[in-house]
Measured scan of single mutants.
Amino acid sequence: GSLMYASIFGNVSAIIQRLYSGTARYHTQMLRVREFIRFHQIPNPLRQRLEEYFQHAWSYTNGIDMNAVLKGFPECLQADICLHLNRSLLQHCKPFRGATKGCLRALAMKFKTTHAPPGDTLVHAGDLLTALYFISRGSIEILRGDVVVAILGKNDIFGEPLNLYARPGKSNGDVRALTYCDLHKIHRDDLLEVLDMYPEFSDHFWSSLEITFNLRDTNMIPGSPGSTELEGGFSRQRKRKLSFRRRTDKDTEQPGEVSALGPGRAGAGPSSRGRPGGPWGESPSSGPSSPESSEDEGPGRSSSPLRLVPFSSPRPPGEPPGGEPLMEDCEKSSDTCNPLSGAFSGVSNIFSFWGDSRGRQYQELPRCPAPTPSLLNIPLSSPGRRPRGDVESRLDALQRQLNRLETRLSADMATVLQLLQRQMTLVPPAYSAVTTPGPGPTSTSPLLPVSPLPTLTLDSLSQVSQFMACEELPPGAPELPQEGPTRRLSLPGQLGALTSQPLHRHGSDPGS
């Protein structure tokens, strides 16, 4: 009898404990919600809404976190579960008819179910419309201010047509639940991603989709105040780019002037030289400038040598048109050559190039014969006009050509200096018209024969001689050997007369 009593008592207590286990969990969670309300000092109306929603959600799901349970299964099984949970929507909604099984599984994985109690606001006026909503159960109302403009029910759709707008718009009203509602919502990016994977279904979906109420604000059109608020930074940046392009296009129409201050000032006329910023005076940081632009901040801005204009002085008759350009485009679109090309026009420029290279940067340069637009006047290309890779490749080509020119210049200078040193070592320090008596009659020769300089066969020296023939050397430049009979510069000019005159010897006659 005691054994029977113990078994009955144990079973009854276990049954009672299981009955009250759900209630215990409910009270535990309710205590957490109330502690949250007390800690954050939530006001009474919002506090009442929180408690009511918790009670309804507990009775609806029995305190089970559906998302946590669903995430515990593998992905393939999750797709089947989501397809079952959203079967009513996918079967009865017209846009989803005719979709393949794979497309429906992908869509079912992207849908999220939302449960809303009465009085809950789903979308506020001015919120971004980031999702498309399908009503599965219940009814909602749409308000503009305090005026109800629409009441939607089961199988209705609200949001915005995503295929017509590249960016999400703003809501033009509040969406509030009238009863307990079940909503299926899919985010904008998720829907577009699935439709991109199934393009054959995309056309059918957009053609058959009928949005019951379009929440997009109709005033959000390009150029409206609301649109400016939504895309303020983007609009200002776009206007700045367009104004920069218009100014650079105007600059290219004036090829007669070359400016070292950047493309923003290349198009300024002579009357605007004294102004601080020219056409860019209202925004000094709008356009890029070269490193020399920092010198323009000092006094005497109108007389600054940074602004270059072609000189009108005539060229000498024998002067060549100019050196070879550094870039391939210089032959086609440049009416002034790079300062480095002028360094190779003569030997005198070679000796004085490194010492006063900055001073020569603004000297007169030889002109190319074609009066085409200036290379320095070409505006900086924006990322939309020329690819970045093209600019980098041009810079690399320019750097390689500069290296080759520097190597060639160093070799030419070394060769010229070597020839000058050899000339100085071969010439005796001094010569006299009267020579010392020699031991015999073989001493009648006034000077030792001097062998002429070897013929220069280097390509670089031939180019130097060509430049010497075309360029007029300055007075202080050293002379180079030329073709024809060679003669030492330090010898007297009348050596031929010395050989014809008898030598005057000093000596005593033994017979006297």
Rank of each mutant, 00 (worst) to 15 (best):
E200Q: 07
D412N: 07
V427H: 11
Q494C: 13
I211E: 01
P325R: 12
P452E: 08
L178S: 06
L183Q: 01
E472R: 12
E160A: 03
D189F: 04
Q363C: 05
L162D: 03
T436E: 12
L152H: 01
Y362W: 05
R240W: 10
G173A: 12
F134M: 03
N163V: 04
I378D: 06
P255W: 09
Q418H: 14
M468V: 07
D509H: 15
T248P: 10
S139M: 11
G269E: 12
L375R: 09
P270C: 09
G264P: 10
L491G: 07
S382H: 15
C181H: 01
E479V: 10
G440W: 10
S139H: 12
L405N: 04
L376Q: 05
P429I: 15
P299D: 08
P320I: 06
E331T: 08
A497L: 10
P373G: 09
P305V: 13
K239L: 12
S286E: 12
S283G: 10
W206G: 03
C337N: 13
D174C: 09
T407H: 09
M468A: 08
V391A: 15
I378C: 11
S451G: 12
S500R: 09
P428Q: 10
Q494L: 08
R247C: 12
Q463S: 08
A414H: 08
V147W: 08
L162I: 12
A370R: 08
N155T: 08
R273P: 08
G159M: 01
S224F: 10
M327N: 06
S243Y: 14
P379F: 03
Q494W: 11
F158K: 01
P317A: 15
P452L: 08
Q361S: 12
Q482R: 08
H187N: 12
Q501Y: 10
E253P: 09
R246T: 11
T179W: 01
P474W: 04
C181K: 01
R408Q: 08
F201Y: 10
S393P: 11
S451K: 11
P225N: 06
G153D: 06
L473R: 05
P441I: 05
M468S: 10
D459L: 05
L143W: 12
N403M: 12
L191V: 03
M197C: 08
G359V: 08
P291S: 13
H204E: 08
G145W: 01
V391I: 15
E392Y: 01
N214T: 03
I378Q: 13
T336Y: 09
L375P: 12
A260W: 13
S465G: 11
D356K: 10
P305D: 15
D182E: 07
E319G: 08
N403Y: 08
G507I: 11
L380W: 07
G232A: 11
L128V: 06
Q463P: 13
G511L: 04
V147A: 10
K332T: 07
L480R: 08
V258R: 09
V147G: 08
G476Y: 04
M468Q: 11
L128P: 07
L456G: 10
P339F: 04
R388T: 03
G159W: 01
S348L: 04
F351T: 12
L209T: 06
S293V: 05
S302A: 09
H204C: 10
I135K: 01
T415Y: 01
C368G: 10
S382F: 08
P299L: 03
L164M: 10
K239S: 15
L375F: 09
S272M: 10
S381A: 05
G173L: 08
P291E: 14
G262C: 10
I151N: 06
L503Y: 08
D127Y: 01
A469M: 09
P299I: 02
S208M: 12
R188C: 08
P314E: 09
L417H: 09
F201K: 01
R265E: 13
P225S: 13
E231P: 09
G267D: 12
S227E: 12
L456Q: 09
P387K: 14
S382L: 15
I211T: 02
D182A: 10
